[in-house]
Every structure is written in C-alpha cells, then in structure tokens.
C-alpha cells in the first residue's frame, strides 16, 4: 500500500472483489436495470411492519446473498463495513446484529458504499483482514420520512429533486481472487459550495465529485480515456450535467465514458423521478448489479467509481446551513 500524490492510495496487492449482491424495491424493478439485480421486491415493506425494519431486512439479506455467491464461509469474513442514511446508521447495525461478523459502521451519506469498499480494500492490503465485506442501504420511504415530509402529504416535488433508491448493495472483497481488482482508492475532501436547496442535491455534491475526480487524475497521472467507464454515485441528471461541464472547464473531457448511477437506475420519462435516483443504494445496487456484471463479462475492464454524498441532515437544513458534499473514488480493473 503506498500513497500517490496528495490523497490517493495505490494497493500493492490489489484486493479482488469475489462477488456482489443487490436487492432493490419495486420502483427500481420497473427501471431499465431490473434484469441485473439479484432480487426485486414486490412492495416496500417486505412483510415487515415498518420501513425501518424493511430496510434492515434488505441489507441483511443482501449481505447474506453476497456471502453465499462469493462461496467463502461466513466465518472467514474478518470485517464488515456498512452504513446507511437513517439516524445513527440503524439499518445496517440492526440488519447485521446477528451476523457474527466484526462490524464497522460508517457514514458517508450516499458515498458510503465506496467508502466501505475503499476501507475494506485498505484493511486487506494492509494485512488487517483477509476477507472483508462492504454494504450500504437506503429506503425511499424511511428516507422521505426522516429528511422531508410524510409520504401521504400531497405536495409537489420540484424538477431538481431526486428519488431515493430503495435497496442495498454489498460486495465481498478478498486478498485472494481473480478480479476484478480494487487498485486505487481516492478518499475525498469535504467540499461546500454553499448550495442550500435540499431539493437540489446533485448541484450540492457535484463540486465534491469534481474535486475527487481531478485529484485522482493528478495523483495517478491517468487520463479520463484510461477508463472504460467513469461512474458517479447519485448526481442525477442535473449534477451529471454540471460535472461534465466543470471537468471540461478544468481541462479533462469525460463526456465520452462518463455516466451516473442515478441517471442509469430510473427512466426519467416514464418513472417520474425528476433528476434521477439518489441514496446509498443507488451507487450500491447499480455497481453490484449492472457494473459488476459488465466487469465480469469483460465488456468493460477499467472503472472509476466515484460515490457522492451530501453530508446534511434535516436539522442543519432547517437552520439554514448549506449542504457540504463529499465524494470517494475507487478504481476497479480486471487486470493489474
């Protein structure tokens, strides 16, 4: 493990992603990526009494599916990095409380999945773990309840708003394996450009994504064309547009191979999701389902995954604070 440039970690023995799993809700199942998900739920409750319980169940089942698919015994997993959006990360801690795996709860808002993947890879390459797991979940209903208004309240969503993805993604990462490999991890800085509109998260997070993207290129000396796919977590249509424009202005043209999970997961025209998807599960499920599948089939070989997060809560928002953004990046490659 060595440090490149100002903030990028290069793994000497890049850890391999053994397998991934994702479970999503009914709305995501209607979207264009439905066939890539391991399981699609018929309703938001999944037989539970509350949305919070449902979200815990989703992350629990996602993690156990990932472990089963990776074909290594559950007790050989040394560490689990997981997080979500609910207060004190209760979905992941409640969901994984009987899992018997050392648990490290993390919070990076919607960037949690990549944050966990980067940490897990660092622990493995540093010798602290042989197999580790990362997971992240979000749930439309529980997130709306916590951050916005009750679902039954009849109000309109502005065109800049995003739709929290219901679901969870999980990846099992190991010291031994045949790839895809996690080769670099660029943890991001907190960037706050003063956006206060909680209905325009994409615009609030885009500067953080830009900062991490530029830093990654500078630290590694790579160019955008090195990657087959540069994928941000949940900037949505507006944030995607802003990031493309800003990186062009900064001398990096990413137009050809750039996309965003929030744009991919829903069909804007038919699903009425306005600016696209958001939430921990947005990046988690799109990577675990769609992108990992393409990596496996060698359709794409080099991916830069940048998950973005808005580090805000409803209290600070009501107090008129702006929304700080963060973005973490991992480079995932089929060959080392």
């Amino acid at each position: 493990m060595q440090k490149l440039g100002s903030q990028t970690i290069k793994f000497d023995n890049p850890p391999s992603i053994l397998d991934t799993a994702c479970i999503v809700g009914p709305k995501e199942a209607d979207g264009p990526l439905a066939k890539y998900f391991d399981q699609c739920l018929d309703d938001e409750f999944w037989g539970e009494k509350t949305w919070e319980k449902a979200e815990s169940k989703i992350i629990k089942e996602t993690v156990s599916t990932a472990i089963t698919k990776s074909k290594i015994p559950a007790d050989s997993i040394d560490m689990c990095f997981a997080g979500d959006l609910l207060n004190q990360c209760i979905s992941s801690s409640f969901g994984l409380r009987y899992s018997n795996i050392p648990f490290i709860g993390i919070f990076g808002a919607c960037s949690t999945f990549v944050e966990g993947m980067g940490l897990a890879s660092s622990f493995i390459d540093g010798g602290g773990a042989t197999n580790a797991l990362c997971a992240a979940s979000s749930h439309f209903c529980s997130a709306e309840k916590q951050f916005r208004f009750p679902l039954e309240l009849g109000n309109q969503r502005p065109p800049t708003s995003q739709w929290t993805v219901t679901g969870a993604g999980s990846a099992v990462i190991s010291k031994n394996g045949n790839g895809p490999f996690v080769t670099h991890f660029t943890p991001g800085k907190i960037v706050d450009m003063g956006i206060k509109d909680a209905n325009n998260m994409g615009a609030a997070m885009a500067p953080a994504a830009l900062d991490t993207l530029l830093t990654h290129f500078k630290d590694t000396g790579r160019k955008p064309s090195y990657y087959d796919l540069i994928l941000t977590g949940d900037l949505g249509h507006i944030g995607k547009d802003i990031l493309k424009d800003l990186s062009q202005k900064n001398g990096y043209n990413i137009n050809a191979n750039y996309n965003d999970c929030g744009v991919l997961i829903f069909d804007k025209e038919t699903q009425d999701t306005h600016s696209g998807g958001s939430g921990c599960a947005c990046c988690g499920s799109v990577f675990s389902g769609y992108v990992f599948n393409k990596l496996r089939n060698k359709e794409i070989n080099r991916v830069l995954l940048i998950a973005t997060g808005a580090l805000t809560n409803s209290t600070t928002n009501q107090q008129g604070e702006s929304i700080p953004g963060i973005a973490h990046a991992v480079a995932i490659e089929n060959t080392i």
Binding site: Q156, G194, A203, P207, I238, K249
Partner: peptide
C-alpha cells in the same frame, strides 16, 4: 481559471440556477 464557476459560492449558485430546470409554472 477565468470562467470557473467553482471559484466563489456566489458564482456557483448563479451557475447552478442557470443549469437547473424551473418548475413548469
């Protein structure tokens, strides 16, 4: 950079306002 909208908070706010679609009023 001369036309970099991420220089100041105000520039960025103006830039975002231009980029974000308005409600179909």
């Amino acid at each position: 950079m001369a036309n970099n909208p991420t220089e100041t908070v105000k520039d960025y706010q103006n830039y975002v306002d231009k980029k974000s679609p308005n409600s179909p009023i």
